[in-house]
Design a protein around this nucleic acid. Structure first.
Length: 854
DNA sequence: CTATCCCGCCAAGGC
DNA sequence: GCCTTGGCGGGATAG
């Protein structure tokens, strides 16, 4: 805590604050001093004057402390800090009379857990940038807030119960903010319902208010146990799917009762109507679940104490607020839920709980997560701790390994990115500061949303939205910002596809790995990377030419299954121009193989033909990390699209969507969309000098990749591809027409199964390109006369060398392969391959295709 | 007086 | 054995 912290706070003039009435100022200053020891000395006062002052005889404890301090430098430094305060205390004591001194002590309130939590929360944004380092070092926090670590643990446990933080390692947590909150609440509510908490509450209320007011707690306990399904007892910590394993290895304690208690407490609110829970009822319910046969007053008292602790934190989170309920006996302390509403049925809220664009295999994994969750919730009567599903241990290790990798990357603490409240505030001011801080965060987020809209980068609309509302969305999304950064890096991203408009041509960006994966997993779906651009032609089945469902496919949400895609592949004859010749063993990640196993190609799940299998389904299934790039109307995007999508994107943003990465090994992850403008350097591979305005019109949402970290994020590559692709299309990049071939890329482009080539290309050397483009053309024909798919990928570093040509009436287009790249270049500069398609090429292609469809 | 909850002891368990 | 973590309850303070 230093001056820099003050500087980035809007509460800078805290000096004035301490000029409050004298009596208050004493405490205030002390309070200030307590959390800001570096502050001017005249304001500082010791928090613990009675402790170990130099003249006092040493108590055994003090002696021990000294010994410990001597042994551990860290502790020593901590103790020195304390001593400093203590010495200040002495000094102050000398100058103040006993009475004054007592008054100078920070009041109990100023040391409350709630206030501490406020201060803690003020340090972090409610909705942090998930791609940044959001680590929390407990030592630092404790130091800066000038509290014992013990108190921080209390806060962390409650926050952890809401998945606002997760344990990363010893002494380290990750701040998630409220990104997970709604989802957590939904899960908790569902668990509460399954757990019949409502009945328990009613039962206890009946006991209290009814004919047996004097029932002893034991009797109630027995009643509850008898009336409530037995399997609810000993609910373990409710994990959030996708977060099960975070730091699991360091979650040594199996009985983190505060976390569990906190969750249960929250559950009570979520299922209560009205959402008011009195402490004693909560305590009784919580005790009841703990098999406390020998329930006694002390147990109850202790429970109440803990509930106060939890309630304080929840109050700081503004999830509950203190109220009093009046009863016969008088008024009882209670709390009212003021947090967001949670819809209990997770199935009904796919946009939140269920990935909207998940691949089929992921559904299976998600189910596993749910099972895992319920396993923890209902651990078959034996007390079960924080356990890991055995089948996912390996994945967890991978994830953690990735976590470590990420953590090892240069990063700085986020401490200052939101500013801190100057600690030198009276409690009310500090609370106000915390609250204002949160509001500012909110405003900041709103501002980002607005900005996002202005750059015409609409987000994918919620599945809950009527598809029509998104039909005009000319945007596509880059990989979603996986909520948990390590996962983001470690796994393929979920496919975030735009709402496909049948009248719009699309290109599909496929991540190189996905290219291989898709072909490996389903041979019937072949893609051909066309050289530098890795343009892959996908033949869309003719049977689906009447695709009314293109726009509504998103409504299927999580129902998208392999079966659909498989049906599509088999029944409707997906064919691909070429199959990339790749050794599966070489390039198929284990995860994906797993997926393939989980969902065999012959999946019996089939959909009736009446139910349209859509292009998007197909993509989601086989190219989970693909992105649709609308080819048409790009030039109109600037205004119309932005306007038409303004509201939609807002709506989309309003709800925190969670998507699961289909390729992350089954660990569902959530994502949060954020608009990030293309950093200028994304364009650099082309050596373009684009005015910001040009970039701003690019209807691209590139989230998760902060500019500063783009270099380390795999997902940034698509950005450049996409951007340049769009720029090509928009004609902002001069056309380069070249013929080339691409023997490189380590993958041979074997032209096979090409049934649709109706004419030979002018340049025989470019059969590969021809095949690919031929398919492309077919796409156009079959989707309302528009070309639909061009699959872009990026694996090369060679410059743009492609060309499109038209082959008479057949409209056979070429995107020839590029010249053989330098073998070693394939891994050097992924962005430079952006140039895969010549600038005017796509534009030309579009024009020609448009013309051909007339 | 009750309500509230700070405080820190001390044990569990990991390294 | 040290350290982190957190259960726990005494007892102080607020109302």
């Amino acid at each position: 805590m230093s001056t820099e912290d003050k500087e980035n706070q809007s509460f800078e003039p805290h000096e004035n604050t301490v000029k409050t009435p004298l009596k208050q100022s004493a405490t205030s200053n002390l309070f200030l001093a307590e959390i800001q020891p570096a502050a001017s000395c005249h304001l500082t006062t010791p928090p613990k004057p009675n402790e170990i002052s130099s003249g006092d005889p040493w108590t055994p404890t003090a002696n021990l402390k000294m010994l410990i301090s001597a042994a551990s430098p860290e502790i020593r430094s901590r103790e020195q800090g304390k001593k400093l305060l203590d010495s200040r205390s002495e000094i102050l004591e000398e100058h103040l009379s006993g009475d004054e001194y007592e008054k100078s002590q920070p009041s109990r309130k100023e040391k409350s857990l709630g206030l501490l939590c406020h201060k803690f929360l003020a340090r972090y944004p409610s909705y942090p940038n998930l791609s940044k380092n959001n680590e929390i070092c407990l030592d630092e926090v404790a130091d800066e807030l000038n509290v014992e670590r013990r108190r921080i643990y209390d806060i962390m446990n409650v926050l952890e119960s809401l998945h606002m933080v997760s344990r990363l390692a010893k002494n380290r947590y990750v701040w998630h903010g409220r990104h997970n909150l709604k989802r957590t609440l939904q899960i908790l509510k569902k668990v509460a319902e399954e757990n019949k908490y409502m009945q328990q509450i009613q039962l206890i209320k009946k006991r209290e208010c009814g004919e047996e007011p004097a029932r002893d707690n034991q009797r109630i306990d027995l009643m509850v146990k008898r009336d409530i399904p037995s399997n609810h007892m000993d609910i373990s910590f409710v994990e959030l799917p996708g977060m099960e394993f975070r730091g699991a290895s360091v979650n040594s304690r199996k009985d983190k009762s505060l976390r569990v208690m906190s969750q249960k407490f929250v559950m009570l609110f979520l299922i209560s109507i009205p959402q008011v829970v009195s402490l004693d009822i909560a305590a009784k319910i919580l005790i009841g679940e703990d098999h406390v046969e020998n329930l006694n007053k002390n147990k109850f008292k202790t429970k109440i104490r803990r509930l106060y602790d939890i309630a304080n934190v929840l109050s700081s989170l503004e999830l509950i607020e203190k109220v009093h309920v009046k009863e016969k006996k008088g008024r009882k302390p209670a709390f009212k839920w003021t947090g967001p509403d949670a819809f209990s049925d997770v199935h009904d809220t796919p946009s939140v709980l269920t990935p909207t664009t998940i691949a089929p295999a992921h559904l299976v994994e998600q189910k596993s997560s749910k099972e895992h969750c319920s396993k923890n919730l209902f651990p078959s009567r034996c007390k079960q701790g924080f356990t890991r599903h055995p089948s996912l241990i390996k994945l967890a290790k991978t994830t953690q390994s990735d976590c470590r990798k990420i953590r090892s990357a240069p990063s700085s603490p986020i401490r200052n990115n939101t500013g801190q409240i100057p600690s030198s505030f009276p409690s009310k001011m500090a609370q106000l500061a915390a609250i204002c801080k949160q509001q500012l965060d909110e405003q900041s987020r709103e501002f980002k949303k607005t900005k996002l809209k202005l750059v015409s980068s609409p987000l994918p609309c919620s599945l809950a939205l009527p598809p029509e509302s998104c039909l005009k969305s000319e945007t596509f999304l880059l990989p979603s910002c996986v909520e948990f950064l390590p996962l983001t890096h470690s796994s393929a991203s979920p496919p975030i596809l735009p709402h496909i408009h049948s009248n719009v041509s699309y290109a599909v960006y496929v991540h190189p790995s996905q290219m291989q994966l898709a072909t490996a997993c389903n041979p019937s779906f072949m893609m051909q990377p066309v050289s530098c651009a890795n343009v892959v032609g996908i033949k869309y089945p003719a049977e689906t030419s009447s695709k009314p469902a293109l726009g509504k496919m998103l409504t299927k949400g999580s129902d998208i299954s392999l079966g659909e895609s498989d049906t599509l592949a088999k029944d409707e004859g997906i064919r691909v121009a070429k199959k990339q010749e790749v050794s599966k063993d070489d390039c198929i990640p284990e995860k994906f193989l797993k997926r393939c196993q989980v969902v065999p190609a012959d999946s019996p799940i089939k959909k009736s033909k009446s139910e349209e299998v859509t292009l998007q389904d197909m993509l989601q299934t086989w190219i989970p990390s693909s992105y649709l790039i609308p080819l048409s109307q790009c030039t109109q995007l600037g205004n119309e699209t932005a306007d038409s999508n303004k509201g939609k994107s807002e709506m989309c943003l309003a709800e925190k969507k969670s998507y699961s990465s289909p390729a992350d090994g089954g660990i569902p992850v959530t994502s949060d969309f954020k608009a990030v403008n293309f950093p200028a350097f994304h364009i650099t591979p082309l050596n373009l000098t684009l005015p910001p305005s040009s970039v701003s019109t690019v209807p691209v949402v590139n989230h998760t990749v902060p500019d500063s970290e783009a270099h380390s994020n795999l997902m940034q590559a698509p950005s450049s591809s996409v951007l340049n692709f769009t720029l090509h299309h928009m004609g902002q990049i001069p056309t380069i027409r070249q013929m080339s071939s691409d023997p490189g890329l380590g993958s041979a482009h074997i032209h096979q199964g090409e049934e649709c080539v109706s004419s030979l290309p002018r340049n025989v050397d470019l059969k590969e390109g021809k095949a690919s483009l031929n398919v492309l053309l077919e796409h156009g024909h079959e989707l309302n006369g528009k070309p639909v798919l061009t699959v872009l990928s990026q694996q090369t570093t060679a410059p743009i060398t492609s060309r499109i040509s038209q082959e008479g009436n057949e409209n056979v287009f070429y995107i020839p392969s590029k010249p053989a790249p330098v073998p070693s270049s394939s891994s050097s500069a992924p962005e430079s391959n952006v140039d895969g398609i010549s600038q005017g090429t796509l534009l030309d292609l579009q024009r020609e295709l448009d013309a051909s469809t007339d």
